[in-house]
Computed example of a mutant assay.
Amino acid sequence: MNTRTSFARRLTGAVAALTLAGAGLLALPTSAVAADPGPAFSVPDATLDAAVTCQGDLAGSTLTPVLLVPGTTLTPELNFSWNYEKVFTAQGRPWCAVTLPGNGMLDIQVAVEYVARAIRTTYAKAGRKIDILGFSQGGMVPRWSLKYWPDTRTMIDDLVSLDASNHGTQSAQLICLLGCAPSVWQQKSGSRFLTALNSGQETYAGISYTQIYTATDEVVFPNFDPVASSPLRTGDGTIRNVQVQSICPLHLSEHLSMGTTDPVGYALALDAFDNPGTADPSRIPASVCLQLVFPGVDYTTYLQNFGKVLAVAGQQLILGPRVFGEPALAPYAR
Rank of each mutant, 00 (worst) to 15 (best):
Q304L: 15
T154Q: 14
Q186V: 14
N103Y: 14
Q170W: 11
Q245P: 06
N103C: 05
L250A: 14
A124R: 10
C54T: 05
L174P: 09
W149R: 09
E218V: 13
L303W: 08
T19W: 04
R153P: 11
E218P: 08
V69L: 07
Y148M: 10
V293R: 09
G265S: 11
E218H: 14
M258W: 00
A34E: 13
Q109V: 08
P276C: 06
L232D: 11
Q170S: 15
T154H: 04
T30Y: 00
P76F: 02
K125C: 01
S6K: 12
T3G: 00
L250H: 12
G320Q: 10
L310V: 10
P101D: 01
E326D: 07
A34P: 09
P101E: 04
I239N: 05
Y209L: 14
L174E: 15
G179R: 07
Y123D: 07
S257H: 02
T300C: 00
T260S: 13
G277P: 05
L174R: 15
I239H: 02
L74Y: 03
V309G: 07
L303E: 13
S246I: 03
T154N: 08
I284N: 09
L58E: 12
T216P: 00
L319I: 10
D163H: 01
Q304M: 06
A196R: 09
L177H: 01
T12G: 12
A51D: 03
S161F: 00
G237V: 03
R322E: 08
L270I: 02
L26M: 12
V220C: 04
G314E: 10
P222V: 07
V52D: 01
P182T: 03
L270Q: 09
A34V: 12
S229A: 14
L100C: 02
C96Q: 04
A272D: 07
S208D: 14
G138C: 05
D271K: 13
I207H: 08
F7T: 13
R322Y: 02
G127N: 04
R233T: 15
R322G: 09
L63T: 09
P94G: 01
Q291W: 07
T301I: 04
E326Y: 03
A116H: 08
G24A: 15
P276W: 10
A286E: 11
Q201C: 01
Q186F: 11
G71F: 08
C176Y: 05
G38D: 10
V43T: 15
Y266E: 14
Q316E: 14
S208Y: 02
L11N: 06
V293M: 09
Q170H: 08
L292A: 05
Y302F: 15
F135P: 04
D298I: 01
T99F: 03
N275P: 08
L58Y: 11
L146T: 00
A23K: 08
G102R: 06
V52W: 00
N198C: 01
V244A: 10
A124H: 09
P76Q: 05
L26D: 02
P327I: 12
A328F: 12
W82Q: 14
L25R: 01
Y299N: 06
A40K: 15
D157M: 01
I175D: 13
P39T: 03
T47A: 07
A228K: 05
L317W: 13
